[in-house]
Amino acid sequence: MEIDRPPQARLRIGLTVNGRPVEAGIEPRELLLDFLRNRLGLTGAKRSCDVQVCGACTVLVDDVPVSACCTLAYEARGRRVLTIEGLARDGRLHPLQDAFIEHAAVQCGFCTPGMILTALALLREVPAPTPVQVKAHMKDTLCRCTGYWKIIDAVVDAGRRMQAGEAPDAGGGAREVAPRGKP
């Protein structure tokens, strides 16, 4: 019996992931989400709805939030991809990450990477958003644990902190990425 076998064809692509150049052979049908998770071991982007509704798989491609579950890896060729693993810099958390921790905007954590990257895209366009602006921008990113209030608080607060001088996009956060405290 003839079966639709996975095609053996390989495409070569080059892209930048979290600031590092990556060259890879991919299948034409390979999704960006599978490429990141399975090939690069970057499991921060999560698979949930598969239909570009929930936002759990959101990564930034050339600074634009995209659903990695509905984007071909091929479409990311020649582009810059940022995943949650690439957000902290020089051992310091990004202010958004700090704010999510402090405001208890994290519960099960499954939506958190996509939520933070979606918020990052907003802060790059609107440096100090109001809660109304946060809601309008982030209403397509789902969280099933929180009531969203703490997430809105965190994004507004991160915007304020970044405006107040904590360097945007470079780990200006208060916390170290290293494990919590030392005894």
Partner: peptide
């Protein structure tokens, strides 16, 4: 668990 969850770890 927040630190692990905001960094994707």
């Amino acid at each position: 668990d927040a630190l692990d969850k905001v960094t994707g770890a």
